[in-house]
Design a protein around this nucleic acid. Structure first.
Length: 1022
RNA sequence: GCGGGGGUUGCCGAGCCAGGAAAAGGCGCAGGGCUUAAGACCCUGUCCCGAAGGGGUCCGCGGGUUCAAAUCCCGCCCCCCGCACCA
């Protein structure tokens, strides 16, 4: 029998095949790209960071890149696909230290998940050895999976020439004023005296740094004493009725930048790290301050008119001063003036207030007292104040903060009932000051109404209070607008914070206190972390509008895949702030003008794609670090300066310089950067920023593609905790082609791929089947097949279907939809071939050349192997199959579809009848009119309307409507010679169905005939 | 909270942008063929009902538009990711 030679061969030796072709490719240098007359395609994948072995995540991203590279190469492009290694930063150093210290956890993770043999691992006790080891391993892995990389361009970011390149880049940025010094808050461990990164944390990984606005209210006790109130809503300063202090807390009096502050003990400790000069004078008892009053300086300025009147009426000695202040037109100026005379104003106001109180509770100065009350507010006790949050002192704004309102109400009651609090009588009054209007809502005093709606009885009901707070804050933030009694009437609450914070600081009554959003934040060493302001850091000024504008321009013109990431990128550009780009610790390049700083790792990997051009010359030994001068790089990358100075400074011949320049001009810009989605908000963003900063628009990148992660059996992979699947292991266990195909087929775009052993094995079976098919048919002469035009129906069908697959695969690849591409190029063709063989096709090999080429970007080794059974060229360099409309035979396709449907119909019937013979007859000719009418009408609705006018059709509206749908989709159905098709397929149907088939309408009853329509013959079984 | 994405038949996952199939493909499961047997391979079935190719129900929930909605519109619920100085 002819069948069995294929099956017996069994599974091919993937491993041997892979090794063989990898060697052949390498020896033939077919992926080493040099400029020529072809159009070029420069594709890059972010170089991997080498603190471990490459894993399934890398495998996915790079396989996508390689499939595209191979696809483009087969489409006539001169493709450059290089790779390098990223080693900048601290993780490698940390790893070396942990290995040197024999850290058990590290050893476990690296032997268990990264597949590093223990004896090798223990050797890796310096960063250099780690880089050496993992780059070697990475190269092995990348080769073992068959990527078409031009290895002459490999490098690491520690290489001296690379550092020269980065120095040049940073000089360029400096020239353009895009790098500047500043300070920046970071998470910091006081014990280690170091900034703390995520993986160094024991607790609090989710904590972010929030900036509280500190607003100082002033008391007076022989001198000014500031009460720094911390708030996230500085606008509420206009509605303060009192301030809160925790009577049970530990507080200190300290000199902060020369001013006396009352603040919590913790706060004083924290401020030391926040660029403040802090000298603790003494511990103080918070209860001593309760009942004392403090001055709201902002309001004092704003209400200077009223104050002046009050002070005059009550004979205060600062009445004149206040009048003077009131003469200023602008509120800001008044406040400034108050601050200028802070000492006198505060003392004067406080003593006036206290005099007036003693003098006249409830008598003739009632109104004046009320005015003063708004500005001179009491310090009151509150348990809910957290001394470990910011300063430990907060403002009370009962109109807009449910906690404040409810606590005040409680306190009011207590004052009446408890003897110990009698001092506070007259000071505790619940009189909320409203400063925000919420658009579209009817609140008078939001905090009061919301608290009442929720039925909050006292401050013990924390849950409800939190809920109320959330409601009020949310509504006010989104729909709130400031009222007349504020500094910015009409301004939305959502916008006021930054403005006001800055104003208050400028006026001298404000400050910033950085605090964690969640607590505690604990370092691995067990110490509680603080926020530290790092001074004199170098920053990349990403927030500059002119810089961003250019990035937006780039985004507009570039292609982002998938498309909706363009919007995501825009948002991220908008959101990006200045970024500290200097570090004290780590591997990398020093800032050339300030050598105590290292350039941070995300900042030295932004335009390095152009370094691949240099790398070839460097690896050839033609270019050394000392040759890489600014003049050289200006000339070869930017075309500025001149060849003479480039040549002179670099000590390279003019020819060499020109050669590098030509290479660069040929290859640049980057045509596609394909990356995992984790790099969107950082690396890819910086990639865009730096390109627009340094290169002219014609050298800006053309496209970015983003792909999702890989999980293992549904579990997230983790480099540091496992599970992890290394590229090496995946290839070793499954073979390169299986690994590649699986990862490409597992999912699309940014959705995550799940690596499932079972599915992977199954794919391997599919590939083996493919190989067997090839083995059986590929080299065989086709029977009775000369060319497409004259061939038999089934052969034409197969060729036609192949055209569909080609079109679909190409379309998918153009959009980087590898899943769809593999599906059509592999699975769908496979199904067609199977159907073809089942139908008795003898010549599947007529499409095999195309099929092998079609699959070659995805499973290059096996394709190369099979291809060589018949050809001596590399399939990797062949022309990718082109969709050829002249080889599409719609009628053949429709006819096959017809047979499939007929078979299903008969099968359905046979389910219910135990028949020996099935009679089939195509519908009567006249029914084809339906098709004509339907096609003329063009759409379903019109067609049905038209047809139902004819009474012949009315009795069978159901059948007609089904047919109309069909004919509108496959118009060729009417051109099929049904009778002939059935006759030709008779043997097939009989074999498949196990019954006798007869084309004979005389045996078919009328009611069955009625059901027939073109494309759906009458069937009768008996 | 802000921003981006998403909820499809046992599972994974297409389809939705350009309305008109119980809804591709894979996995799993069941049955049959092949085989001494296992594996591999091939075929069939896999929402419910049905002794004739049919009918019913279905794509997070609730409305709406339409001859027709998984697909368009409105409201709601739920899930994932990013929010940084870390590669």
């Amino acid at each position: 029998m002819e069948t069995d030679e294929a099956n017996v061969t069994g599974a091919p030796d993937f491993y041997a095949i892979e090794k063989k072709w990898q060697k052949m490719w390498r020896e033939s240098k077919i992926f080493e790209a040099e400029p020529d007359e072809r159009p070029k395609f420069f594709i890059t994948i972010p170089y991997p960071y080498l603190n471990g072995n490459l894993h399934a995540g890398h495998t996915r991203t790079i396989t996508i890149g390689d499939a595209v590279a191979r696809y483009m190469r087969m489409n006539g492009y001169n493709v450059l696909f290089p790779m390098g290694y990223h080693v900048t930063g601290t993780p490698i150093i940390g790893l070396a230290e942990r290995i040197a210290n024999r850290d058990p956890e590290t050893i476990e993770v690296y032997t268990k998940y990264h597949d590093v043999p223990l004896e090798d691992l223990l050797e890796l006790n310096t960063p250099e050895k780690i880089v050496e080891y993992f780059s070697r391993e990475a190269t092995k892995a990348l080769n073992s999976i068959g990527y078409s990389i031009d290895w002459r361009r490999v490098f690491t970011t520690m290489d001296e020439p690379y550092q020269k390149f980065i120095e040049w880049q940073y000089w360029k940025l400096k020239e353009k004023n895009l790098v500047a010094k500043g300070s920046h808050p970071v998470r910091y461990c006081p014990h280690d005296e170091n900034p703390v990164e995520d993986h160094d944390l024991m607790k609090g990984e989710n904590a972010t740094i929030v900036d509280f606005t500190v607003i100082k209210l002033y008391g007076y006790d022989g001198g000014l004493i500031a009460f720094p109130c911390a708030t996230l809503r500085p606008e509420t300063i206009f509605g303060v009725t009192n301030i809160w202090i925790n009577p049970a807390g530990k507080y200190v009096l300290a000199e902060v930048n020369g001013e006396k502050w009352v603040l919590s003990r913790e706060a004083a400790d924290k401020l030391v790290h926040q660029e403040k000069e802090v000298k603790v004078i003494e511990e103080v008892n918070p209860k001593d301050f309760i009942g004392k009053t403090v001055v709201n300086v902002v309001l004092a300025g704003m209400l200077a008119d009223d104050l002046a009147e009050v002070l005059k009426a009550t004979g205060s000695d600062i009445a004149d001063l206040m009048e003077e202040i009131a003469r200023f037109e602008r509120r800001e100026d008044r406040i400034a003036k108050v601050v200028e005379n802070l000492d006198r104003v505060v003392e004067g106001l406080i003593s006036s207030f206290s005099n007036l109180r003693k003098l006249c509770d409830g008598s003739k100065y009632e109104k004046e007292l009320e005015t003063l009350r708004m500005i001179v507010v009491p310090v009151l006790p509150a348990d809910f104040v957290d001394t470990d949050n910011a300063t430990g002192i907060v403002m009370s704004v009962p109109a807009h903060a449910p906690y404040d309102y409810v606590a005040l109400k409680d306190l009011e009651k207590e004052v009446k009932n408890e003897a110990g609090l009698k001092d506070l009588e007259g000071l505790v009054k619940v009189k909320p000051i409203v400063l925000i209007r919420i658009e579209g809502e009817n609140y008078e005093v939001p905090a009061v109404e919301v608290s009442e709606e929720l039925g909050i009885k006292n401050q013990g009901e924390k849950e409800l209070l939190d809920k109320a707070t959330k409601i009020v804050y949310r509504k006010e933030f989104h729909k709130g607008v400031l009222l007349e009694n504020t500094l910015y009437p009409g301004m939305p609450v959502s916008r006021v914070k930054d403005v006001l914070q800055k104003d208050l600081i400028d006026l001298g009554v404000g400050d910033v206190f950085y605090e964690f959003s969640e607590k505690p934040v604990v370092c691995r060493c067990g110490t509680k972390c603080v926020v530290k302001i790092v001074k004199d850091q170098w920053f990349l000024n990403y927030s500059r509008p002119d810089w961003k504008k250019k990035v937006f321009e780039l985004l507009d013109r570039m292609k982002i895949i998938p498309e909706y990431y363009k919007e995501e990128f825009r948002n991220k550009v908008e959101w990006l702030k200045d970024k500290a780009c200097a570090r004290r610790k780590g591997l990398g390049t020093r800032i050339p003008w300030d050598r105590e700083w290292l350039i941070e790792s995300l900042s030295d990997s932004t335009i390095y794609m152009c370094y691949y051009i240099l790398a070839k010359f460097i690896n050839e030994g033609r270019l050394k670090a000392e040759n890489i001068t600014p003049e050289l790089l200006d000339y070869v990358f930017l075309g500025t300066g001149d060849i003479e100075s480039a040549s002179r400074s670099s000590k390279l011949s003019a020819e060499t310089v020109e050669e590098i320049r030509r290479d660069f001009e040929y290859w640049y810009p980057v045509d596609l950067r394909s990356s995992g989605k984790d790099l969107v908000a950082n690396h890819l963003l910086f990639f865009l920023f730096h390109h627009v900063a340094i290169f002219p628009p014609e050298l800006w990148p053309k496209a970015i593609a983003v792909n999702g992660y890989v999980s293992l059996e549904g579990k997230k992979m983790s480099k540091s905790k496992g599970p992890l699947l290394t590229m090496k292991r995946a290839v070793k266990e499954n073979g390169a082609d299986v690994t590649r195909m699986y990862i490409l087929y597992a999912s699309e775009y940014d959705s995550d791929a799940d690596w499932r052993k079972k599915d992977v094995e199954n794919l391997a079976h599919h590939l083996s089947r493919f190989y067997s098919l090839m083995k059986k048919y590929y080299t065989r002469e086709p029977e009775g097949f000369k060319d497409f035009k004259s061939s038999a129906h089934l052969d034409r069908w197969l060729v036609s279907r192949m055209q569909r697959a080609i079109k679909e695969t190409r379309d998918a690849m153009e959009k980087l939809q590898t899943r769809r591409a593999v599906n059509s190029a592999f699975f769908e063709v496979m199904n067609d071939v199977r159907w073809y063989l089942r139908r008795g096709g003898k010549n599947p090999q007529i499409i095999f050349d195309d099929w092998i080429k079609l699959l070659s970007p995805f499973a290059p080794h096996i394709c190369e192997e099979i291809w060589h059974w018949k050809h001596s060229s590399f399939v990797s360099l062949e022309k990718y199959p082109e969709y050829d409309e002249s080889r599409v035979d719609e009628i053949a396709e429709v006819a096959e579809e017809y047979i499939k449907e007929l078979m299903n119909d008969i099968k359905e019937v046979l389910k219910f009848v135990d028949a020996k013979v099935v009679y089939i007859a195509p519908a009567e000719e006249w029914k084809k009119e339906v098709a004509k009418i339907a096609l003329k009408a063009g759409n379903f609705g019109k067609a049905m309307k038209e047809l139902m006018k004819d009474e012949r059709w009315r009795g069978m509206s159901k059948e007609v409507s089904n047919f109309v749908k069909k004919v509108l989709k496959e118009s060729k159905i009417v051109e099929v010679d049904e009778k002939r098709v059935i006759e030709e397929s008779k043997d097939f149907l009989e074999k498949e169905l196990g019954v006798k088939i007869a084309v004979d309408d005389s045996k078919i009853p009328e009611d069955k005939k009625k059901l027939a329509m073109p494309g759906k013959p009458a069937v009768y079984a008996e």
